[in-house]
Nucleic acid binder design. Structure first.
Length: 293
DNA sequence: GTCCAGGCTTTCC
DNA sequence: GGAAAGCCTGGA
C-alpha cells in the first residue's frame, strides 16, 4: 500500500490511498454494522470502537480515532496490509471480473470480529440485508455494552458469547425479529462460550478444516461458514455461494442451472486462492446490476 | 455417501 | 403471492 498517514485531533487521514472506497467496502454485503450518514460518510462499530469513515478526493478520513487505535485495530480491520493492486491485476485477466472490478474498484475485505461475524451470518439465513442490519443493531443495543458517542448518537458493541449465551430465547425473538434463527444464535453462543468450539484455533486452520469446525455450530452451513472464514478468519480462498453468486456464476460461467455445491467448486477452479476476493467483486456487481434476476 | 423437498419468521416488493 | 448472503430434517 502506498499512502501517507496524517494525524490530527481525533482523526487519521490516509492521503492518496488507492483501492479504498467506503461505499464499496460497506455496501458489498460483508458487514452489517454501518450507517450511511447524510454527508455520504459511513459510521461503523468494531472492536469496541466507533469510527466514521469519509472519502474526500483521494484521501480517506478516519474520524473518532488516533494513531494507536489505527495501528492496533483499523489497519488490520481494513486489511491495509494486503496489496489489492496486485490482486486486481491478477483477477482482471478474467473478462467478467474486469467489469465487476470496474464497478467495485474500492472493495476491501474487512477483518471483522469472529464471534459477531458468525452470529450475524447465522441471522442472514433466508433473510434480507436491511432486516439483518436491524436485528444486529437491536441485539447490540439490548445486550451489548455502551461504548461511546459520536456526533450525538450512542453506540453499543456487539455482545460477547457469554452475554448472548445467557439471553432468554423467547425475549430475543420478540425484540430482535430474528424469527426461527433464535435458538441457533443462543445455542451457538453457548457452544462458543463454553469452549466446545474454540474459534481462535480456526485462525491457524486451513479453509476446509475451519469449515468443518464452524459447521458444528447450529445454523452454520456451507454458506455461513464460508462468510465467517472470509470476513473474520482471513481465509481469502473461501467462496461463499449465495443466491446472487449462484446467479452470476450460472449466467457468465456455467451457462446452465447448477446446484450450489458445484458452484463452490467452480469458484475454486476459476479463481483459486483469490476466490474470496473474486466473490466480493462479483457479489457487488451482481446486486448493483441485478444480473440474472 | 449424495440429492432434494418442505418448513421455518418476518419484511418488503 | 413470492422472495430474501440458508439451514435442518427426513426420505429416496
Amino acid at each position: 500500500m502506498k499512502y501517507k498517514i496524517e494525524e490530527k485531533r481525533n482523526k487519521i487521514i490516509l492521503k492518496d490511498i488507492e483501492h479504498f472506497n467506503p461505499k464499496h467496502i460497506f455496501e458489498c454485503g460483508q458487514a452489517f454494522r454501518w450507517d450511511r450518514e447524510e454527508d455520504g460518510s459511513y459510521t461503523t462499530v468494531a472492536y469496541g470502537r466507533v469510527l466514521n469513515v469519509k472519502k474526500e478526493g483521494k484521501d480517506i478520513i478516519l474520524y473518532g480515532t488516533n494513531r494507536k487505535d489505527f495501528e492496533d485495530i483499523w489497519y488490520d480491520y481494513f486489511d491495509l496490509g494486503t496489496d489489492y493492486g496486485k490482486i486486481k491485476a491478477e483477477l482482471i485477466e478474467d473478462p467478467v471480473l474486469k467489469q465487476a472490478i470496474e464497478h467495485g474498484y474500492g472493495i476491501r475485505i474487512l477483518n471483522q470480529e469472529p464471534f459477531e461475524t458468525i452470529i450475524s451470518f447465522i441471522i442472514s439465513a433466508n433473510n434480507q440485508i436491511g432486516r439483518i442490519k436491524k436485528s444486529v443493531e437491536i441485539i447490540a443495543r439490548e445486550y451489548g455494552e455502551l461504548i461511546g458517542e459520536l456526533n450525538g448518537k450512542e453506540y453499543y458493541r456487539f455482545p460477547t458469547s457469554e452475554e448472548l449465551s445467557k439471553v432468554d430465547v423467547k425475549e430475543l425473538r420478540e425484540i430482535s425479529k430474528i424469527g426461527f434463527r433464535d435458538e441457533r444464535v443462543v445455542e451457538s453462543s453457548k457452544m462458543i462460550y463454553e469452549g466446545e468450539i474454540n474459534i481462535e484455533e480456526i485462525f491457524s486452520m486451513d479453509k476446509v478444516e475451519g469449515q468443518e469446525e464452524l459447521m458444528k455450530l447450529p445454523g452454520v452451513g456451507p454458506k455461513v461458514s464460508d462468510c465467517a472464514l472470509l470476513f473474520a478468519f482471513k481465509k481469502g480462498d473461501a467462496f461463499p455461494v449465495d443466491v446472487w453468486v449462484k446467479r452470476i456464476m450460472e449466467h457468465f460461467y456455467l451457462k446452465e442451472e447448477t446446484p450450489v455445491s458445484k458452484i463452490g467448486k467452480a469458484g475454486d477452479d476459476y479463481f483459486g486462492k483469490l476466490a474470496g476476493y473474486a466473490q466480493q467483486y462479483l457479489f457487488y456487481y451482481a446486486r448493483e446490476q441485478d444480473i440474472g434476476k
